[in-house]
Deep mutational scan, measured.
Amino acid sequence: SSGGSSILDRAVIEHNLLSASKLYNNITFEELGALLEIPAAKAEKIASQMITEGRMNGFIDQIDGIVHFETR
């Protein structure tokens, strides 16, 4: 797709992000992006959206560029 990722790509990214949230206590956007094979800024945006929508527990430290995952 030309304008970003398809629905399937997005679903795969979100699935992998949720998997990462179970493996890590926290991770930088750079590391997360590398893990998900997407730019760091996109990793931040998707993580932020999932947390806001209540689909993933955690919070974002924008100063240090880190996602902190919280286990249920």
Results as ranks from 00 to 15, higher is better:
S1N: 13
G3A: 11
G3T: 13
G4V: 12
S5A: 13
S5T: 13
S5W: 03
S5I: 12
S6A: 12
S6F: 07
I7K: 10
L8A: 13
L8I: 12
D9Q: 07
D9L: 06
D9A: 06
R10N: 10
R10W: 14
A11E: 13
A11G: 08
A11W: 13
V12G: 08
V12E: 10
V12Q: 13
V12A: 11
I13S: 03
I13W: 07
I13V: 08
I13D: 04
E14K: 03
E14W: 05
E14H: 03
E14R: 04
H15F: 14
H15M: 14
H15E: 13
H15C: 13
H15R: 14
N16S: 08
N16T: 09
L18Q: 05
S19M: 15
S19D: 08
S19A: 15
A20P: 00
S21F: 04
S21G: 06
S21D: 02
L23Q: 08
L23D: 05
L23K: 11
L23I: 13
Y24K: 04
N25L: 12
N25C: 11
N26H: 15
N26G: 06
T28G: 06
F29W: 07
F29T: 03
F29A: 02
E30G: 07
E30Y: 08
E31M: 10
E31W: 06
L32W: 02
A34Q: 10
A34T: 09
L35H: 04
L35P: 00
L35M: 07
L35Y: 08
L36F: 05
L36G: 00
L36K: 00
E37K: 15
E37W: 07
I38W: 03
I38M: 06
I38V: 07
P39L: 04
P39A: 06
A40E: 04
A41Q: 10
A41H: 11
K42P: 02
A43F: 03
A43H: 00
E44M: 15
E44Q: 14
K45M: 15
K45C: 11
K45A: 14
I46W: 06
I46V: 07
I46K: 01
A47V: 14
A47H: 00
A47R: 00
A47T: 09
Q49P: 00
Q49K: 07
Q49W: 06
M50A: 03
I51D: 01
I51N: 01
T52M: 13
T52W: 10
T52V: 11
T52N: 14
E53W: 04
E53T: 08
G54W: 03
G54Y: 04
G54T: 02
R55S: 05
R55M: 06
R55L: 07
M56H: 01
M56E: 01
N57E: 10
N57D: 09
N57V: 12
N57I: 11
F59Y: 14
F59Q: 06
I60G: 01
D61R: 07
D61Q: 05
D61H: 07
Q62K: 14
I63E: 11
D64G: 15
D64A: 15
D64N: 15
G65Q: 08
G65S: 06
I66P: 01
I66L: 08
V67T: 02
V67A: 03
V67K: 02
V67S: 02
F69Y: 02
E70Q: 13
T71S: 12
T71A: 10
T71M: 09
T71C: 11
R72C: 11
R72G: 10
R72W: 13
